[in-house]
């Protein structure tokens, strides 16, 4: 198992955001975590990344217990997150954003960054412009590209489709599938349930911090409760 979460709790003071969450992500998989606003999806990813503390539970990555590692160390070892709201550095150029993605890399990343520019011609054109000039879709591409330069083993994406037009959402999910085919394991948090279930191998549904359902996309989408709550087919 590439990434294993065991009985994980996240507490903000008395606010119990994630309750006894267990989750597995195997090499080559796309696993999605679904849930309404405030269900605890971002808190789960942040706890896995190490940017919020675990109240209980363990995070195992490549067989090692990384629960006490700093977030930065996790990045250096291949556990990388594309955060909610993109969080690109708008005061820096597109290229500088990519170089920051390569921050933990000790080897030469120039060839990989060139390959990224080939994949994202829009970014290549704006290479030396401040990232603030990018459109929402381009910013999301930059956030993904920046995470790719870190050469992740697991990429976690927090609501990447938020605020994108239907065409861009489609492109984004094609990219996700593409990256997965080339060997990247992906943990995908989404509110766009249809799209997420279309690309994922397995999924979990969170409600107020608790896992209420898990299974294959077919199992999840045939469930009436879920359909009623998230798929708009009540």
């Amino acid at each position: 198992m590439l990434l294993r979460i065991e009985q994980l709790d996240v507490l903000y003071g008395r606010n119990h955001a994630v309750k006894a969450m267990s989750l597995d992500l195997d090499a080559g998989e796309i696993v999605t975590v679904l849930g309404a606003n405030g269900a605890g999806k971002s808190s789960l990813l942040k706890a896995i990344q190490g940017t919020v503390p675990l109240a209980r539970g363990r995070v195992l990555f490549k067989g090692a217990n990384i629960s006490r590692w700093s977030a930065a160390r996790r990045v250096g070892n291949g556990l990388v997150m594309v955060p909610e709201g993109r969080q690109i550095f708008i005061g820096m150029t597109v290229h500088e954003n990519l170089l920051l993605g390569a921050y933990t890399r000790r080897d030469d990343t120039a060839a990989e960054i060139d390959a990224i520019y080939e994949r994202f011609p829009n970014l290549a054109q704006r290479r030396d412009l401040p990232a603030s000039v990018l459109s929402g879709g381009e910013q999301q591409m930059l956030a993904v590209a920046r995470a790719l330069v870190a050469r992740p083993a697991v990429m976690m994406l927090d609501e990447p489709s938020l605020g994108l037009s239907p065409i861009l959402v489609k492109q984004l999910f094609e990219l996700i599938v593409d990256l997965n085919r080339s060997g990247l394991a992906i943990l995908l948090v989404e509110q766009n349930t249809n799209m997420a279930l279309a690309v994922a191998h397995r999924g979990y549904v969170l409600e107020l911090g608790r896992t209420v359902m898990q299974g294959t996309p077919a199992e999840l989408s045939s469930d009436e409760q879920l359909a009623a709550a998230y798929l708009g087919q009540a």
Binding site: Q49, T51, V75, P83, Q87, F89, M92, L100, Y103
Partner: peptide
Amino acid sequence: SSIGRALRAIAENPDAATLMGVEV
């Protein structure tokens, strides 16, 4: 320099800098 970029990243958004692997 790499450390200079890391410093500017911290100046702009320390949380995002952490996600780049910067030990703030």
